[in-house]
Computed example of a mutant assay.
Amino acid sequence: MAYEGGTSPAGLRRAPNIRDVAAAAGVSHQTVSRVINGHANLRETTRQRVLDAMEELQFRPNRAARALVTKESRIIGALVASGAEYGPTATLQAVQTAANAAGYVVDPAHIDKADHRSIEAALDRLMSHAVEGLVLLAPQSRTLEVIEKLSIRIPFVTVHSLHSEDHRMSVDQLAGARLATRHLLELGHRRVVHVPGPEEWVETEARRQGYLEEMAEWGLEPAIVPAGEWTADSGYRVGLELRQERRFSAVVCGNDHIALGLVHAYADVGLRVPEDLSVVGFDDVPEAAHFLPPLTTIRQDFPELGRRCVAVLLAELRGEAPVAMGDVAPRLIQRASAVAPAVVPWAAAPPV
């Protein structure tokens, strides 16, 4: 079967579209749409002619084009902050896995800047692809403030947000930081410092607050170093300062990469973790079990978070009862980087 005008499929300089198929099959583009969408009211000979043309042209129906007819694209959009660290990346992967299991695909759009124009442009791109729902994985305060001002008319869920309570899904960051701090205090540490991630991130503020609340419950004075980055380099720089002061016996790190850099800084001058300093991280990255020493940390259940995000969207799309928006509980993973201090400083008693 020849393409109209004598041009062979191999001669096409672009991907074939629905009108190319219609011309090759000698039918209208509406008939091709009916074949794509499984309409029963078609002659079998016509259907087969269209299918043969699709095969010859190697035409694959575009999901967004299909949505114009069916009103269902089976696409979930994901707005993702560029340069995001392990947490957002792992959450996106979990959302993709859960969406695929439900017969959907995830279309991610990355934003480079937390300004209105960049965010709106990313959302416009997703809307042009006929996404049925949105997962917002941009947990910086400025980004969320912009999103709050936009009118999103399709189902959406924000991940690790302090805003949009009706649409928020998260691992409980505050509870995780309290778990990490409490573990060190129960081991006997009283001089515990917190090394946070970067400002403007929702997780940074929630983890800082959890540390402060647990220290206050034990009647202890908190100590927080200036905000850094989510990187091992940032942890290394803080470690250089902490190892000189030697005022603290334990540290709660903003994430596992910060903990990695901090341990490195101590090792460079012959100080040992956990003998000279106990360290607890946050996230439980896949490599955390292989740090030296293996890292005690807070595990976030990203697969469960992804499942819940997709469940929220699908329930709304299907008109089913709303899914509860409760936080996913974190877990303390005990390894070798945190032990009781060599000299137990019983300056304060545990809470009653």
Results as ranks from 00 to 15, higher is better:
59 F>Q: 01
180 A>N: 07
73 S>T: 10
269 V>R: 10
213 E>N: 12
160 H>W: 07
199 E>H: 13
141 S>K: 14
346 W>G: 14
141 S>R: 15
17 N>Q: 10
13 R>E: 11
318 R>A: 12
103 G>K: 04
86 Y>Q: 03
299 R>E: 11
148 E>T: 13
20 D>F: 02
17 N>H: 13
121 A>I: 13
65 A>S: 12
280 V>D: 01
284 D>G: 01
278 S>M: 04
297 T>W: 04
53 A>P: 10
160 H>R: 05
32 V>E: 00
266 Y>T: 03
267 A>N: 08
339 V>A: 12
61 P>Q: 05
230 W>C: 05
203 E>N: 11
209 Q>T: 15
24 A>E: 13
51 L>A: 09
92 L>P: 05
338 A>P: 13
266 Y>P: 05
42 L>H: 09
172 D>N: 15
323 V>N: 01
150 L>Q: 13
262 L>I: 07
226 P>A: 07
217 E>V: 05
72 E>Y: 09
337 S>T: 08
159 V>E: 03
292 L>A: 12
115 D>V: 05
1 M>G: 13
350 P>Y: 08
241 E>A: 11
349 A>I: 09
351 P>M: 01
163 H>N: 13
280 V>S: 02
234 S>L: 01
225 V>T: 14
234 S>H: 11
183 H>K: 04
155 P>H: 01
63 R>Y: 05
344 V>E: 10
198 P>K: 08
163 H>E: 12
38 G>K: 06
343 V>K: 13
249 S>E: 05
243 R>F: 01
290 H>A: 13
10 A>R: 13
88 P>L: 06
58 Q>Y: 03
225 V>E: 10
217 E>C: 02
151 S>C: 11
276 D>L: 00
344 V>K: 11
256 D>P: 08
285 V>S: 03
352 V>K: 12
94 A>F: 02
113 K>S: 11
267 A>Y: 06
166 D>Q: 15
82 S>M: 07
72 E>D: 11
79 L>S: 07
273 V>Y: 00
89 T>S: 12
26 G>Q: 12
56 E>C: 02
73 S>Y: 07
175 A>Y: 03
123 L>D: 06
82 S>D: 07
150 L>P: 13
108 P>M: 03
310 V>H: 03
221 E>G: 06
253 C>K: 07
220 L>A: 07
175 A>S: 15
6 G>I: 04
171 V>W: 00
302 F>D: 00
109 A>S: 15
351 P>K: 02
28 S>G: 14
32 V>N: 03
130 A>N: 14
338 A>I: 10
285 V>E: 04
39 H>P: 07
264 H>T: 14
336 A>F: 09
245 E>F: 02
44 E>R: 12
122 A>V: 12
125 R>C: 08
246 R>Y: 03
90 A>R: 01
263 V>D: 00
27 V>E: 06
86 Y>T: 02
132 E>C: 02
277 L>I: 10
262 L>K: 06
52 D>S: 10
211 Y>H: 12
94 A>G: 05
